[in-house]
Amino acid sequence: MQESRRTFLKAAGAATAAALVAPHVARAATFPSGPVSLMVPFSPGGGADRSMRLMAPFLSKELGVPVTIENIDGGGGWLGWSEMAKWDPEKDDHKLGCINLPHLFSYMDPRMKRTETLESFNILCWHSYDPCIWAVRENDERFLNLKQFLDYVEKNPDQIVISSTGVGSDDHMGIAYAEKFLPNFKVRKVYSNGDNKKIQEVIGSVTDCVAGNVGYYVPFMLEAQLRPICVLHDERWSELPSVPTFKEVTGKENVSYAGRTVGAAKGLPEEKNKVYLDALRRTIANPEYIIQELASKNVLMFLEGDALQARLKSSADRVASIKFWESE
């Protein structure tokens, strides 16, 4: 009994003490000089929030100041991101933000009338990466692999139903790519806000196939409820070595993923960028942190510099080529 209460009080107390004291014990010469806020553009309890809350204490250790999570939820992330694009490099130099891809690329959808582009953000590094997969029911005899699935779709146009997250999401983008670049790929789609409804539909035989991410769906494969038929990645995914990529079967490179990056204020001086980047690099390589993330099936992937820019550009080009907003 003592233990639970003490842990709670200690944690709450520490956070408070830090928040109250830190601004005043300004270590003037050093940067950062006070608490750093990490903006998560979704509500507490979601995937991005869980991951960033796990990271905060480790990042805090590296930066030497408290890192607090600030949730700004709404507009599919854009409430937070449109603020982030307006951050002042001087006044808002103690702010970091989580940027989700491909969500951010929804600025390309002309119907949303966004003024921001990729250039409006100062993305420091890649944080985590979860490729898309397609999976069918383990006991579905009609198709055991992607080849058979595509053949079935070709023979029965407009009969197969795929569960996906809403239009513009990473899951939908993979399907939209297939619809656009495979000649005879005509399927029906039902959309959800999240994975719970999708998994309910496919396991309950309401739909035939589900488009999701490795992290969430691996457990259902281990439970022998779902069988992955392809991974939408440029090479086979280390966690699922026996699952072929979309390209291996069709010759078309269909890459889609849910990724997170961390950014700071646009125009932040190089030396401040470097402080954050060094701390993030060490945090994301911290084995203790990696283990905690693995427990929630989240694969960390650190990219910076040219590799980061190349990945951002190729992703942006792909979204621009799919033009998902024209698909309906």
Partner: peptide, 16 residues
């Protein structure tokens, strides 16, 4: 969800 189209947002980000 079915189209990504912003319905009845009246260009107000709070409704998106």
């Amino acid at each position: 969800n079915y189209s990504g189209f912003p319905r009845y947002t009246f260009d107000y980000i709070g409704f998106e």
